[in-house]
Design a protein around this nucleic acid. Structure first.
Lengths: 136, 136
DNA sequence: ACTTTATTGCAACTTAGTTGCGTGAACTGT
DNA sequence: ACAGTTCACGCAACTAAGTTGCAATAAAGT
């Protein structure tokens, strides 16, 4: 398990360090995107600096092991699962800010040829902003 | 025109000031949401302080004359047009950050009763993130 | 084990967002 | 039209998230 993570990091051209393994493991175990603050808090038991975890997230993203999504007011990071659906919709609570995946939603562009081409190509990240069940 | 704006501000329980009228007029003339920085730059010819325009945006939002949407990495403000469709999708370019309205897109939730109820209720703001036509 | 080079930790900096306080302008009633 | 009251503005400073420079340290190849 951990060994596989190390291999993926090394194969991506990055050196295997403890913090990178921990970040990648955390995001692989979590079913929703986390932002920088949530990652630092989740790994608060360790002594890794915020800047280190920040650069870990950026490096792993650039290496293709994570995906960076602009959710709510901060960047969120999600494990780039090879077998999972690449891009699925996300739900963001406008009250408490929590994020969850919403793969059950489908988006249909109009047949009219208006707006950005990316929408008709389907190369867009979909986000839904509203109140989560806890915030009524 | 301006008189109608003044009436709407006064009816909302706010004092009619020059900066509030200017902010509301700007956002009524613009067909896409603007953030705080864009508003201050659009009104740069004037001498109004950033804090003033910031509070104008907040006050007008709380009064229901504007709508605040978390788009990209910053808050954006949009004129709350009484006759327009209340909530329409927005498109955000992940490269240059520009925002445009995308009313031609429809979102279909799954029939399965999973995920936040807001999605099935339709009380969600829809956002599409991708590359705009200018950014390829 | 040794060298090379990427990575870390610390600190400082940038930008967006936000607030306190004294001055000044907008509404109210006369 | 005028004076009083209260809200809004301008200035400045502060907070938090994101970001970067640089010296010290650790990982990979020989």
């Amino acid at each position: 398990m951990i060994g596989a993570l190390k291999d993926r990091i090394r194969s991506a051209g990055l050196r295997v360090t403890a913090s990178r393994v921990a970040v990648l493991e955390l995001l692989n175990q979590t079913d929703r995107p986390l932002n920088h603050l949530e990652v630092t808090e989740s790994l608060a038991h360790s002594t890794w600096d915020r800047a280190t975890l920040y650069r870990n997230l950026m490096d792993l993203t650039e290496a293709g092991l994570l995906e960076r999504v602009s959710l709510g007011s901060t960047w969120h990071f999600e494990a780039q699962d090879p077998d999972h659906a690449s891009a699925h919709p996300h739900f963001v609570c406008t009250e408490c800010g929590t994020v969850e995946c919403a793969p059950e939603v489908t988006v249909t562009p109009s047949k009219k040829r208006i707006g950005p081409k990316s929408i008709r190509r389907g190369t867009v990240q979909v986000q839904l902003h509203g109140l989560c069940d806890d915030c009524v």
